[in-house]
Amino acid sequence: MNGKKIGALFLILLAAWALWAAFPTRKRQVLRTLKALSRAVEKEGREGDLAAAAAARKVSAFFALRCRIEAEGYDFRAEVEREEIARYAFAARGRASRVSLRFYDPVVDFGPEGEAKVRATVRLEGEGDGGESFREVHEVKCTLRKGEEGWKIEEVSLVEVLRR
């Protein structure tokens, strides 16, 4: 009897977990997108040109066809196409032997028409081809929009926490 009860409880928990995983909330969808972007950016060791191109394309797939990029502190404002992002990502991967990108403390707010605004801390670190290490930490604001292909990043801006 006890065994049956435990089995039933286990099945109920399993079903609840399956439902939770199969029907994520909008917030979890956005957070999953950021996690997937981190995984796509990650690089460990050398990779061939074909693998780098495939990885760069995968990274660019997280962005909208046109994406606005802003950096307050550097007085930089540009609108780039997805293809350009793939080219930048390819070039950047070629210059680094190890790359990792992590999002910390993301806060997601939803706007009208399937828009999500995310504020998070981003840490990009790794090692260049010559063995020199690099580490960048920034607060970022991103705007994502849900389309047929899922959530895509439309806008990224670096927040200037320390202003010279």
Partner: peptide, 13 residues
């Protein structure tokens, strides 16, 4: 300690 978006990553200055 200076916080960024959250409190998990801080800048020490």
């Amino acid at each position: 300690a200076v916080r960024l978006a959250g409190e998990r990553v801080i800048l020490l200055k």
